[in-house]
């Protein structure tokens, strides 16, 4: 199985350590991974803004980069959601369908495809609050949603529980959106920032030292809010913990 690694633009530019951890983790798990150098973006910002036709060039490039892989893995729920569910600015050829059907968010790839049993190298002696992005929670369904009253499950939690030393706390409103929302964070900046502050306070009040998430975009926003509001809490991508971050 040849894996193509997609690193979203904001991880590439702001959180390279999350990208490196994703790659190293997949390599530790014995996977054959390659990062095509000509990648840029999945097209999500344009799609979410309603400017879907403007996503065509990014989507076409994405397919050009990744069509030759068996599976495409990315450390981002919202990008995976875009590719899987909204990637329609370009004609839906067999190649495009192949790419869309074989794109996975990292957690679901580890949990559902590789079915990883253990991360013997991983130890994290901290108390963490898990932030499920709305993309992973309600679009990719990697955890149960509080609105539906379904039987509780959580793929990211299943993975994190295999890490030595880690402790968990649950905020009061675990499924509440943190307010990032892509361009929403700019067009509705006041509400967005308020949601972000409420979110980081909720985790902090629950006793979390770290917020851990499969989505760096949410954390980029939350970190900005926490730093401005003076909420002492740190942020880490789930790939970094599973890869054995010692912080």
């Amino acid at each position: 199985m040849k894996i193509g690694l997609f690193i979203p633009c904001y991880i590439d530019a702001f959180y390279p350590e999350a990208g490196i951890a994703t790659l190293e983790l997949l390599e530790k798990l014995g996977q054959d991974v390659e990062y095509p150098l000509d990648q840029t973006c999945c097209g999500q910002p344009m799609g979410n803004s309603g400017c879907n036709s403007d996503a065509a060039a990014a989507e076409a490039l994405f397919v050009r980069n990744f069509a030759r892989f068996d599976k495409i893995v990315m450390p981002s729920g919202s990008c995976t959601h875009h590719v899987r569910d909204n990637f329609d600015a370009i004609p839906q050829t067999d190649e495009v369908r192949h790419v869309r059907e074989n794109t996975f968010e990292l957690v679901e790839f580890l949990h559902d495809i590789l079915k990883v049993e253990a991360f013997p190298w991983a130890e994290f002696n901290h108390t963490v609050g898990l932030h499920n992005s709305c993309g992973t929670l309600r679009a990719l369904r990697t955890a149960s949603m509080s609105e539906l009253g379904e039987k509780p499950f959580s793929k990211p939690m299943d993975l994190l529980k295999k890490v030595k030393g880690i402790r968990f706390v649950t905020p009061k409103r675990p499924d509440e959106c943190c307010g990032f929302g892509g361009t929403f964070s700019v067009t509705e900046e006041a509400i967005s920032a308020r949601m972000g502050v409420d979110k980081v306070r909720d985790h902090h009040d629950a006793g979390a030292e770290y917020i851990v998430s499969a989505d760096s975009s949410c954390m980029m926003h939350q970190q900005g809010c926490a730093e401005r509001a003076g909420v002492p809490i740190r942020f880490i991508h789930i790939a970094q913990i599973l890869n054995g971050a010692a912080q």
């Binding site: 633009c9 840029t40 910002p45 344009m46 400017c51 403007d54 996503a55 990014a58 076409a60 490039l61």
Partner: peptide, 12 residues
């Protein structure tokens, strides 16, 4: 902005 971003994202 979306038009320009879209263009840019298509040209690595």
């Amino acid at each position: 902005i979306m038009y320009m971003a879209g263009k840019l994202m298509g040209q690595p």
